[in-house]
């Protein structure tokens, strides 16, 4: 899977209250959640995303609450992949479960400015800056998480295993 898109940059310890403030959690409709994604820190975010854009963040992305509304709002807003130095554990698990692709890379943050064009090869983990051709490889996705992705999310993975 390949996508060409623009970069949105964020720093370290981006918490779930920043991704979607709790006052908007009274609904679970994805499209409604998408409109409120990062509303307090980047009010123009949800309205300006082009389908296929990419978030590049620092460490501990998604820390804080367990709200699955956070990865849902990012996914429904049109973000194709989140690349971070590291992820908070509940967010990491949630992202795979709902089928929001995420990649861990220590180097990507340095390679991009906000708005740069980026090319991501998800299956290979290759990340490239389209402007200058610089590239890096993300950490390989653990086999177990890859199985969940290939099944199309946790629900289908569990169904396939016929454990019900």
């Amino acid at each position: 899977m390949e996508s060409i898109s623009r970069v949105w940059k964020f720093g370290n310890d981006i918490d779930t209250d920043l991704i979607i403030p709790a006052r908007f959690l009274n609904v679970s409709d994805q499209n409604e959640l998408a409109k409120k994604c990062f509303i307090d820190v980047k009010p123009d975010f949800a309205g300006s995303i082009q389908n296929g854009d990419v978030i590049i963040a620092g460490s501990n992305f998604g820390c804080g609450s367990s709200r699955e509304h956070a990865p849902w709002s990012i996914k429904a807003a049109g973000i194709k992949v989140v690349i971070a130095k590291s992820f908070a554990r509940i967010f990491y698990r949630n992202a795979f479960n709902i089928g929001l692709p995420i990649l861990e890379s220590m180097d990507a943050w340095e390679l991009f400015e906000e708005g740069d064009q980026i090319e991501v090869d998800l299956s290979a983990g290759k990340i490239m800056n389209k402007a200058n051709g610089k590239q890096t490889m993300a950490n390989p996705i653990p086999d177990f998480m890859m199985n969940i992705i290939q099944a199309g999310g946790l629900v289908q993975y569990i169904k396939n295993k016929d454990r019900l």
Binding site: S66, E68, R93, N94, G153, L154
Partner: peptide
């Protein structure tokens, strides 16, 4: 709910997850 870790005070293992994990 992320603060599910609270029950560890009783000597239980408890951890927060997302809704998909719980639904399953």
């Amino acid at each position: 709910d992320s603060h599910t870790c609270t029950y560890g005070a009783l000597g239980a293992f408890s951890t927060g997850m997302g809704s998909t994990d719980l639904g399953v």
